[in-house]
Design a protein around this nucleic acid. Structure first.
Lengths: 221, 221
DNA sequence: TGTCAATTGTCAGACGCTGACATTAGCCTC
DNA sequence: GAGGCTAATGTCAGCGTCTGACAATTGACA
């Protein structure tokens, strides 16, 4: 499975009917307006009516595109996560679990950047990440989404290693610890006032290398 | 600092005025009714009006006791967490970080049980835990609360070890990984249909011992 | 062109939550 | 133990999120 193939639903056979294109444009406009408003005046102080009005649609239409106000806030995260997971699936089969995770998270940065650009300005995506981390209700949802992603990662690791996830706790444990490292790095980056993407990438690599040795031992089946 | 002293605000000099006792009873009744309703018919399908009505107070009064509907759902968790943190503070100074965390989580079970009994039937507390794990919006809040607790744990570990939490990532990393292990154990317990507390305790101990060796190495300052 | 189905708008309403103000009921002093 | 003080509660109006129902519009396709 290649990285591109794993990112399902991203590639659109170019001219997919006027109706479909119109929907895509509306959705995209809603995301951009929402993120613009959230980052400018805060998540709580932005109402769904405002977002809908900015795109000139009714509030009801907004809720046909997004199940709730939170969902639109995670639109660009969603895209990034899909690419990260695809990167993991694309790692060579022989690679050790932690090395595969490390490689995926560091390699994915490029393809994630491209994917985000299609949707919103990358700088807006980063600003939105800070808003998520600093808004309690969004942070809660973010952590739940992360937990769901970790479950998927654990299943993929188990598949790679030929382990049964229901009886062997190691895939989930490894991923849980990996997730912890990522979260610590992300949090430190958020608190620092550096706006550079490179910083976050390097910070992640540094923290992964820190705990790597303790976790990287070969699993004796 | 002893365990008892660290649990602030739990001990009440018995006859603290009629007003105060009445407030305690109202609060306690709200928690019990809420948990009863949540576990019986689900969190989303229970309205704040229902809870208030069951205790014969106005909806407005409910919101004077709890900032939102979520808060009442975590009332017994809150109590348990306070005791766990107190248990950590009570560990001997010489103990290694991971051993202290392990000891705290396993030892605290007793004192947690007692504290919960004061508030709600322990069995209701356990049923509520399942509701939290299986209700998306509550799970999200639960994970955020956990993250906040982990931050406090990291600071306490740093204090014990004489480390500066702002420059040394190890306390946060250790706690993040510890939290991951706890979460995996809790999740497995939730999915199994065992209703026993002992099972959860043992499951936690097992998973901690599994990763313990990899993390327990002495920190060379 | 006319029919069909998908998309959107409008409206009403449930529910969570808050501010403002009136009412009730412990508390404390004289 | 009467009366004033203040904390707790109730009532009411209103905002914001979200949903169901139905009508109006607008692509798609024969």
């Amino acid at each position: 499975m290649t990285t591109d193939e794993a990112v399902a639903g991203t590639r659109t056979p170019p001219p997919a009917g006027l109706r479909e294109r119109k929907k895509q444009r509306t959705r995209s406009a809603l995301v951009r307006s929402a993120l613009e408003l959230f980052t400018r005046q805060g998540y709580e102080r932005t109402t769904v009516d405002e977002i809908a009005e900015a795109v000139e649609v009714s509030q009801r239409t907004f809720f046909r595109y997004f199940a709730n106000k939170e969902e639109v806030a995670f639109a660009s995260q969603e895209s990034a996560e899909r690419h990260f997971f695809a990167a993991l699936c694309g790692r060579p089969a022989g690679e050790a679990p932690l090395a595969a995770l490390r490689g995926a998270v560091l390699d994915a940065w490029g393809s994630i950047g491209e994917a985000i650009e299609q949707l919103v300005p990358p700088e807006l995506h980063l600003r939105m990440y800070r808003v998520i981390e600093s808004t309690p209700s969004l942070l809660a949802v973010h952590l739940r989404r992360t937990a769901e992603m970790e479950e998927r990662l654990a299943r993929e690791i188990a598949r790679r290693e030929g382990l049964d996830i229901d009886t062997d706790p190691r895939p989930r444990l490894l991923v849980a610890m990996f997730g912890g490292v990522i979260r610590v790095a992300g949090k430190l980056w958020t608190e620092a006032e550096e706006d550079s993407v490179v910083t976050l990438r390097d910070l992640t690599a540094f923290h992964l290398d820190y705990v790597g040795p303790a976790l990287a031992e070969k699993w004796d089946k």
